[in-house]
Simulated assay, not measured.
Amino acid sequence: MSETAPSTTSQPTAGPVVCGFDGSRDSLRAVAWAASWARDHGVGLEVISADRAVGRVVAFDETARANVEGAMRDQVADQVGDIDATYRVIADTPVRALLEAGRNASAIIVGSRGLTAREDFAMGSTSAGVVEHAPCPVIVITPRTPDQPGHGSIVLAADGSKANDPAAAFAFAEAERLGTGVRAVHSVEVPKLPGASLFDLDRLAESVLAEDEKDVTEALAPHDERHPAVELELILVVGEPAVTIAEEAAGAPLLVTGSRGHGGVAGMLLGSVSRRLLQTAPCAVAVVRPTD
């Protein structure tokens, strides 16, 4: 008897793309990306600003609402262009406001840092909270994200786990839309065992990679079959996963990762590799979580 597959956040819906805006440089870049995403995917754009004090005022004063939302529209006019967008000020925390709006969204796009984040903070509290709990894919625009996406293959952080399956589905769907390929990167970090020689460690790494290659290939096979026009390239490397995957993402239009992998546990909503990639990736990072 066949079982019903668990639902995932991997397949974009027809809902709008939701973007958080707080006036910061990163949020302006996120709005520009969100406008391009809306145009390319044929969906609407919803720009959200969350402020409890201002939100309470505009909730009861239509003139104030029109003024505040008009000011938002003016601030992002260059980024939005001719996209049909809606603007909302919500009396709540940014994380809760974006998560609520994300219930019916095809994606949420945020900057990695806001106005209150220090320059040496690689990931702000809002982007972290949204990534960890969002009901749809979240695309984080980091300070290292170029203004124009690269033209290479989409890079997928692949580990062969079931938790990674929604991310793989998302990566293949986006690659097909863009007419490009998928570079699935699997990285293994070999522990430094006391007394082990470099030769022993190399042999251990080769053994682990050979075993993992089978798991990753089997996990990607259904997606490869569903998207015959997408060329799949499997990259197996030895090294710290977050570092090696980020290096492979140079020139990519998007890096896609799951929220947890083999080492993920229920209490860790965002895995260590995914969190590091949000800090080190040279392009936009899409985090795709399963809903089950």
Rank of each mutant, 00 (worst) to 15 (best):
T280R: 07
A122H: 12
G258H: 06
H223K: 04
A105M: 03
A157K: 12
V182S: 10
P282C: 07
A158R: 13
S112A: 10
K214C: 06
V288D: 03
I109D: 04
P6G: 15
R144Y: 12
E231T: 14
S10V: 14
L255K: 09
E231A: 14
S274D: 08
D82S: 15
R260W: 11
C136D: 09
V131H: 06
D92I: 00
A101W: 00
V216C: 09
R113P: 05
G15T: 13
L45H: 05
A122N: 05
D292Y: 01
H133I: 08
R25M: 10
S127Q: 08
D92L: 00
L234R: 15
V89S: 00
G23V: 13
L236R: 15
K162R: 14
A35N: 05
D84P: 10
P146G: 10
A286F: 15
G160R: 13
A117D: 06
F121W: 06
C19M: 12
R73F: 09
A169I: 01
R103P: 01
L220E: 03
G251P: 07
E69I: 15
P194D: 10
I83N: 07
R144H: 15
A184P: 06
F172T: 08
E176L: 02
S207Q: 15
S24D: 09
A50D: 00
T8C: 13
R183E: 06
L99T: 00
G114E: 03
H223L: 03
A205L: 11
V230G: 06
N104T: 06
S106V: 05
R118Y: 12
K162H: 09
T217L: 02
A97K: 00
P191E: 08
Q79W: 07
A107V: 07
A250E: 14
K192T: 15
R113C: 05
H151D: 11
L115H: 09
T180D: 02
G44T: 01
V47I: 08
Q75L: 15
V188D: 04
V31K: 03
C19N: 14
E218Q: 14
G42H: 01
G124A: 04
A242T: 11
L98G: 00
A34E: 02
T291L: 04
A50M: 00
A34Y: 05
I109N: 08
R276D: 13
G44H: 02
A59Q: 04
G20A: 10
P6D: 11
M268I: 15
A66H: 08
S24P: 04
A85Y: 14
L28T: 04
D84V: 14
P12T: 13
G150M: 12
E176P: 01
P241D: 11
S7L: 14
S49A: 03
